[in-house]
Design a binder for these strands. Structure first.
Lengths: 209, 209
DNA sequence: TGTACATCAGTGAACGCGCGTTCACTGATGTAC
DNA sequence: TGTACATCAGTGAACGCGCGTTCACTGATGTAC
């Protein structure tokens, strides 16, 4: 597998779509969605801008590819965070542990890769068809909440919209920390505490204390 | 006070800075921060692009003016929402009412004026100097939480970072509804219910049930 | 196994666009005497 | 009350830039016979 930076020698690239998407993703990583520039991606791959149009309908199509990839990476981080902790014996405790891990993975990804995070939620001309409820992380969140209801930790009347509330809290935290005013309000060493407090609050709020 | 659209007849405009800022704000309203284009603002005011440089250092300076204005408008909506409900006799109940109103005003503004809302939190080259804690809405939120602690509704150990958690929830909700995937996930007539549930959850979480 | 030919995957030059910004300038205004 | 002049607030033309996109093209590949 040839590295992106190395000189291309053959006339045919081999896997230009993937290479372009990768270069575009690197742009997103460095500068967010507005840095995803078709011509620059082509430049980095060592190919003429025109060549991109053989594989992507237009600029927005390329951006969309990067966005999907960023969302998948976010999902990966969330799942990794779940897997990184060791399961707890008590099923309730373990469900709560997973719940927190999902949120922590989310925010951690946003802080570690702000460019990709912003790209994952950027606006595109063509709307993304996939329902977020169809994605892995959302499924995991839903299942975790269902488990907590089944085990009697969350009262059934608190279940509706619980995933949206949890998502909103975690997303808001991520956004406000990544480029919002929270970062200016809060010394960086307090961020962990805020994230923990947010987790506590949502859990208390859903489980009714 | 001359309307923006009417033909300017005098050589001197009278109040070009305000007129440009207003035109730029209208652009933000219609298309968000990326629609704030210096040349277009000048065009709408009926003035040459160069004239803008007499009053704004550069494009970013103009955008910043719009951003500040959008933040002020958001603050206004929040205060209006507080004022629109009638005060409750019980001080605890009234503090909770104000707390909810702050959040509801925030989200409502975002939904009513997505372009301005996005501009209020957009990135600019020059960072905004004013600490958000210095702004009215943030002060009101802080005071309301302090009141709830004083009245014994919120345990003191839950007080730290409470305004950040509340803010994050409400901001996340706004962002995800305005242009995020929540809008696709949720029929519009359920939005009110989610907002309410978010309010309930945060309050329960902070007051410990 | 060789060859003709359709198809695929690139090139290179150019397009129009609209932007932010700068230049040397002119018209209007206000102030000192 | 008039006049000279500094200062202020605009104009108009032009700049360079980099973008997305299109055009007619050529080099490489694979398939039918």
């Amino acid at each position: 597998m040839a590295s992106m930076t190395q000189q291309r020698t053959r006339y045919h690239h081999g896997n230009l779509p993937a290479a372009l998407a990768e270069a575009a993703a690197r742009l997103a990583r460095e500068g967010g969605p507005e840095a995803v520039v078709l011509r620059e991606a082509a430049r980095r791959v060592g190919v003429s801008p025109t060549a991109a149009y053989r594989h992507f309908a237009n600029h927005d199509d390329l951006l969309h590819a990067v966005k999907d990839q960023a969302l998948a990476t976010l999902a990966g981080h969330m799942e990794a965070e779940i897997g990184s902790g060791e399961p707890l014996a008590d099923p309730v405790e373990d469900a709560l542990r997973r719940f927190r891990a999902i949120g922590a993975g989310y925010v951690r990804f946003a802080l570690a890769e702000p460019g990709l995070f912003r790209t994952a939620f950027c606006r595109t001309d063509t709307p993304d068809p996939p329902d977020p409820s169809a994605t892995r992380p959302f499924q995991i969140l839903t299942e975790t909440l269902d488990t907590l209801v089944r085990l009697g930790k969350i009262p059934p009347d608190r279940r509706p919209f619980a995933e949206m509330v949890a998502w909103a809290t975690v997303h808001g935290l991520a956004v406000l920390l990544v480029d919002g005013p929270l970062a200016r309000l809060l010394p960086e060493d307090a961020w962990g505490a805020v994230i923990d407090r947010a987790g506590d609050t949502v859990i208390e709020g859903l489980t009714h204390g």
